[in-house]
């Protein structure tokens, strides 16, 4: 998992981080992106054409990014690091931002997979 988060400087002095920190963040990343892209393509993309624009697709990618950001910082901060609200831990913020950027990339990749199952968003974000 450390390799996956190669952009992040490892918290070597935190055993708990190596054990569960990366895994938790990865689960948040994958689960949230899967749910958001499934909602966009398999639910909304088959019900109505209202959401089948690049603008709406980008909006959903931002929703995904925000969800990943909020969930990562909350779950990692409270459950893993036992931080209290208002306590600032810079490395966690950096890691959360990296996880959020990954969420955008994953959402894009999942879009390419899910789009074929949609009716109205089949050609979003790319035409092939």
């Amino acid at each position: 998992m450390e390799e996956f988060y190669f952009l992040f400087e490892d918290l070597n002095n935190w055993d708990v981080w190596t054990d569960t920190g990366y895994t938790t963040a990865f689960i948040i990343l994958v689960t949230t992106s899967l749910i958001v892209s499934a909602i966009y393509y398999l639910l909304l993309g088959r019900i109505s054409m209202r959401y089948s624009t690049m603008g709406k697709w980008f909006l959903f990618s931002m929703i995904n990014l925000m969800l990943v950001f909020i969930l990562t910082i909350t779950i990692e901060g409270i459950l893993i690091f036992d931080l209290v609200f208002g306590e600032f831990f810079p490395k966690l913020w950096i890691f959360t931002i990296i996880n959020s950027i990954y969420s955008f990339v994953l959402y894009l990749l999942l879009s390419l997979v899910f789009k074929r199952f949609s009716i109205f968003s089949k050609f979003i974000p790319v035409k092939f």
Partner: peptide, 9 residues
């Protein structure tokens, strides 16, 4: 509309 489903289908 380049993204419209029926035109692309």
């Amino acid at each position: 509309n380049e993204k419209l489903a029926w035109c692309n289908e």
